[in-house]
Amino acid sequence: MKQFTIEPLLGSDWQLGDGINIAFTNSALWMAITAVLVWVFVAGGMKRQLVPGRWQMAVETMTGFIDDLLEANVGKAGRKYVPYIFTLFMFILFGNLLGLVPVGLIPGIHAFTFTSHFTATGVLAIMSFSIVLIVGFWKHGFHFFSLFWPANTPVFLAAPISLIELVSFMVRPFSLALRLFVAMMAGHVLLKVLASFVIAGGGAGLGLGVLVGLPSFVLMVAISALEILVAGIQAYVFALLTSLYINDAENLH
């Protein structure tokens, strides 16, 4: 579980106001690396050529992907959320993928996946949820509460249905944050367990090494590939669900 441990790198006594510690940790470092890589990636596509090169094509594919996602789920009004959803998607995607880069091969360097911490995913989820609330109440005022009363609900069902709707609505930020955190953490733990099998099997002699170590290693390779897929899918799911929630606020039924 060491890979999930947060260690202060700089300014372990930095404080914001009174007692609010803001030490620059390894987690913060990987967030910074993620931010820089996202910036580098997108900046590479800023040539604005009429006939795009490969890099520009890749960046335009990503922005077009998010643009289409919002267009499909929210409609024309969704375009103004492209900067936020794009940043969210790229930040999570790069964060997830960076955690899978085997930088641990270099002595003294430890990879860290900040998306495997619910403190980080929670902030992202609360941001998305806040946008939904702000947009909803801004556009619809108190009429936004009609979200909890689906269309054509019989009056005598109004109370239980609206209660269920309210609960499912309030659960959204938690499910959003926990889904990403659990998926990332589970993948890394699984790889860690299999890696320990490889080490232990190899250390226990030839017989066990072939019997346990080798299959575990093969499985690790396969699951690493799966984790790369999961990294993309979880980033997509986060962006997709956020856009669906924004749709609720933008186009109240």
Partner: peptide, 17 residues
């Protein structure tokens, strides 16, 4: 680590945004 996590995530996500 809660405050540090929240602070730095807001800083770097905000910068990226």
């Amino acid at each position: 680590t809660l405050t540090s996590q929240v602070f730095w995530l807001l800083v770097f996500f905000g910068l990226t945004f």
